[in-house]
Amino acid sequence: MADTTDTNRNASVPAASNGGTFREGLKDGLAIGLGYLSVSFSFGILAVASGLSWWQAVLVSAANITSAGQVAGVGIMVSAGGLIEMMVSQIVINLRYSLMAIALSQRTDKSMTTLKRILLAYGLTDEIFGVAVSKKHEVGSRYFFGLTVLPVIGWVSGTLLGAVLGGIFPDFLTNALAVGIYGMFISIVIPKAKRSRMIAVCALLACGISSLFFYVPWLKEHVSSGFAVIIAAVVAALAGVFCFPHEEDTGKEAV
Protein backbone atom coordinates (compact mmCIF):
# COMPACT_ATOMS: atom_id res chain seq x y z
CA MET A 1 0.00 0.00 0.00
CA ALA A 2 1.39 3.31 -1.00
CA ASP A 3 -1.02 5.11 1.30
CA THR A 4 1.13 6.19 4.18
CA THR A 5 -1.09 8.65 6.01
CA ASP A 6 -4.36 6.92 6.83
CA THR A 7 -3.30 3.62 8.26
CA ASN A 8 -6.38 3.54 10.46
CA ARG A 9 -8.83 3.22 7.62
CA ASN A 10 -7.43 0.18 5.89
CA ALA A 11 -10.02 -2.01 7.59
CA SER A 12 -12.83 -0.54 5.54
CA VAL A 13 -10.91 -0.30 2.28
CA PRO A 14 -10.79 -3.44 0.16
CA ALA A 15 -7.43 -4.83 -0.85
CA ALA A 16 -7.79 -3.27 -4.31
CA SER A 17 -5.95 -0.16 -3.23
CA ASN A 18 -4.24 0.10 -6.62
CA GLY A 19 -4.50 3.01 -8.98
CA GLY A 20 -7.57 1.64 -10.76
CA THR A 21 -7.85 0.05 -14.20
CA PHE A 22 -8.25 1.51 -17.68
CA ARG A 23 -11.73 -0.04 -17.87
CA GLU A 24 -12.81 1.57 -14.63
CA GLY A 25 -11.57 4.91 -15.93
CA LEU A 26 -13.48 4.48 -19.19
CA LYS A 27 -16.65 3.70 -17.26
CA ASP A 28 -16.27 6.72 -14.98
CA GLY A 29 -15.52 8.90 -18.00
CA LEU A 30 -18.72 7.95 -19.82
CA ALA A 31 -20.89 10.39 -17.86
CA ILE A 32 -18.38 13.18 -18.38
CA GLY A 33 -18.13 12.37 -22.09
CA LEU A 34 -21.90 12.57 -22.53
CA GLY A 35 -22.00 15.80 -20.56
CA TYR A 36 -19.21 17.23 -22.72
CA LEU A 37 -20.98 16.17 -25.88
CA SER A 38 -23.84 18.50 -25.00
CA VAL A 39 -21.73 21.37 -23.68
CA SER A 40 -19.28 21.37 -26.58
CA PHE A 41 -22.29 21.24 -28.91
CA SER A 42 -23.14 24.72 -27.59
CA PHE A 43 -19.52 25.74 -28.03
CA GLY A 44 -19.56 24.60 -31.66
CA ILE A 45 -22.65 26.70 -32.32
CA LEU A 46 -21.11 29.70 -30.59
CA ALA A 47 -17.78 29.42 -32.42
CA VAL A 48 -19.39 29.21 -35.87
CA ALA A 49 -21.80 32.03 -35.02
CA SER A 50 -18.75 34.11 -34.04
CA GLY A 51 -17.10 33.61 -37.41
CA LEU A 52 -14.93 30.48 -37.17
CA SER A 53 -15.33 27.77 -39.78
CA TRP A 54 -16.45 24.33 -38.58
CA TRP A 55 -12.97 22.83 -38.72
CA GLN A 56 -11.47 25.78 -36.88
CA ALA A 57 -14.00 25.27 -34.09
CA VAL A 58 -13.09 21.57 -33.93
CA LEU A 59 -9.38 22.41 -33.88
CA VAL A 60 -9.85 24.84 -30.99
CA SER A 61 -11.66 22.15 -28.98
CA ALA A 62 -9.15 19.41 -29.79
CA ALA A 63 -6.20 21.62 -28.87
CA ASN A 64 -7.59 22.96 -25.58
CA ILE A 65 -10.27 20.76 -23.97
CA THR A 66 -11.55 23.55 -21.77
CA SER A 67 -14.86 25.39 -21.77
CA ALA A 68 -14.45 28.88 -20.31
CA GLY A 69 -10.99 29.34 -21.82
CA GLN A 70 -12.23 28.45 -25.29
CA VAL A 71 -15.17 30.82 -25.14
CA ALA A 72 -12.83 33.64 -24.16
CA GLY A 73 -10.25 32.51 -26.73
CA VAL A 74 -12.74 32.57 -29.58
CA GLY A 75 -13.72 36.08 -28.51
CA ILE A 76 -10.09 37.16 -28.83
CA MET A 77 -9.70 35.41 -32.20
CA VAL A 78 -12.79 37.11 -33.57
CA SER A 79 -11.57 40.54 -32.47
CA ALA A 80 -8.11 39.65 -33.88
CA GLY A 81 -6.60 40.30 -30.46
CA GLY A 82 -2.91 40.13 -29.60
CA LEU A 83 -0.91 37.04 -28.71
CA ILE A 84 -0.09 38.45 -25.25
CA GLU A 85 -3.76 39.09 -24.61
CA MET A 86 -4.52 35.50 -25.56
CA MET A 87 -1.76 34.17 -23.34
CA VAL A 88 -2.72 36.21 -20.28
CA SER A 89 -6.43 35.44 -20.63
CA GLN A 90 -5.75 31.71 -20.88
CA ILE A 91 -3.41 31.77 -17.89
CA VAL A 92 -5.94 33.62 -15.75
CA ILE A 93 -8.96 31.57 -16.78
CA ASN A 94 -7.15 28.25 -16.64
CA LEU A 95 -4.99 28.85 -13.59
CA ARG A 96 -7.35 26.60 -11.64
CA TYR A 97 -5.84 23.69 -13.60
CA SER A 98 -2.51 24.42 -11.95
CA LEU A 99 -4.11 24.17 -8.53
CA MET A 100 -5.91 21.00 -9.61
CA ALA A 101 -2.71 19.50 -11.02
CA ILE A 102 -0.99 19.96 -7.67
CA ALA A 103 -4.02 18.64 -5.78
CA LEU A 104 -4.19 15.64 -8.12
CA SER A 105 -0.48 15.03 -7.63
CA GLN A 106 -1.27 14.39 -3.97
CA ARG A 107 -3.34 11.38 -5.01
CA THR A 108 -1.41 9.82 -7.86
CA ASP A 109 0.40 6.51 -7.43
CA LYS A 110 3.82 5.41 -8.65
CA SER A 111 2.59 4.48 -12.14
CA MET A 112 2.31 8.21 -12.89
CA THR A 113 5.80 8.70 -14.35
CA THR A 114 7.15 11.94 -15.81
CA LEU A 115 6.45 10.89 -19.40
CA LYS A 116 2.90 9.87 -18.50
CA ARG A 117 2.34 13.16 -16.71
CA ILE A 118 3.49 15.07 -19.79
CA LEU A 119 1.03 13.11 -21.94
CA LEU A 120 -1.90 12.93 -19.55
CA ALA A 121 -1.80 16.59 -18.48
CA TYR A 122 -3.52 17.33 -21.80
CA GLY A 123 -6.78 15.87 -20.52
CA LEU A 124 -6.93 17.45 -17.08
CA THR A 125 -10.28 19.21 -16.83
CA ASP A 126 -12.55 20.23 -13.95
CA GLU A 127 -14.78 17.20 -14.24
CA ILE A 128 -12.00 14.69 -14.84
CA PHE A 129 -10.20 16.10 -11.84
CA GLY A 130 -13.38 16.06 -9.76
CA VAL A 131 -14.01 12.40 -10.54
CA ALA A 132 -10.36 11.36 -10.15
CA VAL A 133 -9.99 12.86 -6.68
CA SER A 134 -13.35 11.48 -5.55
CA LYS A 135 -12.06 7.91 -5.97
CA LYS A 136 -11.30 5.96 -2.82
CA HIS A 137 -8.13 4.55 -4.38
CA GLU A 138 -5.08 6.43 -5.59
CA VAL A 139 -5.05 7.66 -9.16
CA GLY A 140 -2.95 5.47 -11.46
CA SER A 141 -1.91 6.38 -14.98
CA ARG A 142 -4.06 3.64 -16.60
CA TYR A 143 -7.14 4.74 -14.72
CA PHE A 144 -6.51 8.39 -15.51
CA PHE A 145 -5.93 7.67 -19.19
CA GLY A 146 -9.18 5.70 -19.34
CA LEU A 147 -10.97 8.52 -17.60
CA THR A 148 -9.86 11.07 -20.21
CA VAL A 149 -10.63 9.09 -23.39
CA LEU A 150 -14.41 9.46 -23.65
CA PRO A 151 -14.54 13.08 -22.43
CA VAL A 152 -11.97 14.11 -25.07
CA ILE A 153 -13.90 12.26 -27.78
CA GLY A 154 -17.15 13.75 -26.51
CA TRP A 155 -15.72 17.24 -26.36
CA VAL A 156 -14.32 17.20 -29.89
CA SER A 157 -17.21 15.39 -31.58
CA GLY A 158 -19.77 17.55 -29.75
CA THR A 159 -18.02 20.63 -31.12
CA LEU A 160 -18.14 19.15 -34.61
CA LEU A 161 -21.86 18.35 -34.31
CA GLY A 162 -22.67 21.78 -32.92
CA ALA A 163 -20.62 23.55 -35.58
CA VAL A 164 -22.26 21.61 -38.41
CA LEU A 165 -25.80 21.05 -37.09
CA GLY A 166 -26.15 23.94 -34.67
CA GLY A 167 -28.32 26.03 -36.93
CA ILE A 168 -30.86 23.21 -37.23
CA PHE A 169 -31.49 22.71 -33.50
CA PRO A 170 -34.03 24.97 -31.80
CA ASP A 171 -32.65 27.28 -29.11
CA PHE A 172 -34.58 25.79 -26.22
CA LEU A 173 -32.99 22.40 -26.85
CA THR A 174 -29.39 23.63 -26.96
CA ASN A 175 -30.02 25.79 -23.88
CA ALA A 176 -31.31 22.83 -21.91
CA LEU A 177 -28.27 20.79 -22.95
CA ALA A 178 -25.91 23.57 -21.88
CA VAL A 179 -27.12 23.47 -18.28
CA GLY A 180 -26.20 19.80 -17.89
CA ILE A 181 -22.54 20.55 -17.26
CA TYR A 182 -23.45 22.55 -14.15
CA GLY A 183 -25.60 19.68 -12.95
CA MET A 184 -22.49 17.56 -13.17
CA PHE A 185 -20.47 20.06 -11.12
CA ILE A 186 -23.17 19.99 -8.45
CA SER A 187 -23.17 16.22 -8.34
CA ILE A 188 -19.45 16.29 -7.55
CA VAL A 189 -19.66 18.87 -4.77
CA ILE A 190 -22.86 17.96 -2.89
CA PRO A 191 -22.02 14.38 -1.87
CA LYS A 192 -18.71 15.62 -0.42
CA ALA A 193 -20.35 18.61 1.26
CA LYS A 194 -22.89 16.29 2.91
CA ARG A 195 -20.12 14.44 4.67
CA SER A 196 -17.73 17.26 5.53
CA ARG A 197 -18.87 20.46 7.21
CA MET A 198 -15.64 22.14 6.15
CA ILE A 199 -16.31 21.41 2.46
CA ALA A 200 -19.97 22.46 2.82
CA VAL A 201 -19.11 25.81 4.42
CA CYS A 202 -16.32 26.53 1.92
CA ALA A 203 -18.47 25.59 -1.07
CA LEU A 204 -21.21 27.95 0.10
CA LEU A 205 -18.68 30.67 0.73
CA ALA A 206 -17.27 30.22 -2.79
CA CYS A 207 -20.80 30.58 -4.21
CA GLY A 208 -21.30 33.73 -2.15
CA ILE A 209 -18.05 35.34 -3.27
CA SER A 210 -18.60 34.48 -6.93
CA SER A 211 -22.10 35.99 -6.61
CA LEU A 212 -20.49 39.21 -5.39
CA PHE A 213 -18.40 39.32 -8.56
CA PHE A 214 -21.53 38.71 -10.57
CA TYR A 215 -23.99 41.06 -8.92
CA VAL A 216 -21.87 44.01 -7.78
CA PRO A 217 -21.70 46.14 -10.94
CA TRP A 218 -18.22 47.55 -10.31
CA LEU A 219 -16.75 44.09 -9.70
CA LYS A 220 -18.52 42.58 -12.71
CA GLU A 221 -17.15 45.32 -14.91
CA HIS A 222 -13.57 45.15 -13.70
CA VAL A 223 -12.97 41.47 -12.94
CA SER A 224 -13.14 38.84 -15.69
CA SER A 225 -15.18 35.72 -14.99
CA GLY A 226 -12.04 33.57 -15.02
CA PHE A 227 -10.41 35.72 -12.38
CA ALA A 228 -13.61 35.83 -10.31
CA VAL A 229 -13.60 32.04 -10.10
CA ILE A 230 -9.98 31.95 -8.98
CA ILE A 231 -10.45 34.62 -6.32
CA ALA A 232 -13.66 33.07 -4.98
CA ALA A 233 -12.15 29.58 -4.86
CA VAL A 234 -8.88 30.60 -3.23
CA VAL A 235 -10.47 32.90 -0.64
CA ALA A 236 -13.07 30.29 0.29
CA ALA A 237 -10.45 27.54 0.59
CA LEU A 238 -8.16 29.77 2.70
CA ALA A 239 -11.07 30.63 4.97
CA GLY A 240 -11.68 26.92 5.43
CA VAL A 241 -8.04 26.25 6.20
CA PHE A 242 -7.95 28.86 8.94
CA CYS A 243 -11.43 28.32 10.41
CA PHE A 244 -11.35 24.52 10.55
CA PRO A 245 -7.84 23.83 11.81
CA HIS A 246 -8.41 20.34 13.15
CA GLU A 247 -10.94 18.66 10.94
CA GLU A 248 -8.51 16.94 8.65
CA ASP A 249 -6.61 15.47 11.59
CA THR A 250 -9.53 13.21 12.46
CA GLY A 251 -9.16 11.30 9.21
CA LYS A 252 -12.77 10.17 9.50
CA GLU A 253 -13.50 10.78 5.86
CA ALA A 254 -11.18 10.45 2.91
CA VAL A 255 -11.99 13.79 1.35
Binding site: G130, V189, I209, S210, A233
Partner: peptide, 9 residues
Protein backbone atom coordinates in the same frame (compact mmCIF):
# COMPACT_ATOMS: atom_id res chain seq x y z
CA UNK B 1 -10.76 22.16 -0.56
CA UNK B 2 -9.75 23.78 -3.84
CA UNK B 3 -11.57 21.36 -6.18
CA UNK B 4 -14.87 21.94 -4.45
CA UNK B 5 -14.55 25.70 -4.11
CA UNK B 6 -13.56 25.97 -7.79
CA UNK B 7 -16.55 23.94 -8.95
CA UNK B 8 -18.88 25.86 -6.61
CA UNK B 9 -17.66 29.24 -7.80
Amino acid sequence: LIPYTVLSA
